[in-house]
Simulated scan of single mutants.
Amino acid sequence: MPPKRKSNAIEADASAGEDAEQVVKKPRVSDAPEASGSKDKKAKQAAEPKDWHDIVLEGEGEDGGVSVYDDCNDIRRKIRLLQKQPNWKVTAWLKEIGNINSNSFQRFMKATGPTGGASNGTYYAAYVYFEKVRIAEGKKKTAKRERSEAEHREGLPLQDRRGVWVYTGP
């Protein structure tokens, strides 16, 4: 018959536990080889994320600008992931990435397709932001990104291709 009171149940468990052996957890031990002091400092510096503001991309500040290799759908997906973070505010982010107008941002987010919104300033500014953050965090390029770099050596065109007519000739 089980005890009627919680205190009686605790006393019964304590008396039963005295007979059983105590299980002691062992601390985890890493299998990785230990690095020397100078290499350890370099590894820590590489592991610590830098501030994305400090990173300068190739072509930034020049006439041609930074070559864009992620399509609009990728950028919209990354923005939606950002929006799910707690305490993240759209207006503060838009100001931080280049003083982007909120109406421009809304038009870009409502556009569809891989080139929908490519001529919008939000696309370029957000791409530059995400590229800097990727470099700051030390993340690798995705397979899709590497394919895009191989196919479009100068970067993707910054114009919506849906309204473009192609004339193939007679």
Rank of each mutant, 00 (worst) to 15 (best):
R80T: 10
L81A: 05
R28P: 13
W52A: 09
Y127K: 03
P33L: 13
Q106D: 08
D71S: 08
N101H: 09
D71H: 12
I55G: 02
D13S: 07
K39E: 15
K132G: 05
V56I: 10
Y124I: 03
Q22L: 14
G65R: 00
I79P: 04
Q83R: 06
Q159R: 05
A47Q: 09
I75P: 00
W52L: 05
Q85M: 10
A150G: 09
S67A: 08
P33C: 09
L158F: 10
K44W: 11
E137G: 08
R107V: 10
C72S: 04
V23R: 12
Q106W: 07
P27K: 09
G117N: 03
I100Q: 05
G37P: 06
G163P: 12
D51M: 03
V66N: 00
Y124N: 01
A20I: 13
Y124T: 02
K132L: 11
K50H: 08
D40C: 13
R162K: 14
S30G: 15
P2Q: 14
G155W: 01
Y167K: 09
P49N: 07
V66W: 00
F105H: 10
R77K: 11
R134T: 04
S7W: 15
Y69W: 10
E34V: 14
W88C: 08
C72L: 01
P2Y: 13
A136N: 07
A20C: 14
E131S: 05
N99F: 02
V24N: 15
D31V: 10
K141C: 00
V29T: 11
R80W: 06
P33W: 10
K78Y: 08
A12C: 06
A12H: 13
G155M: 00
D70S: 01
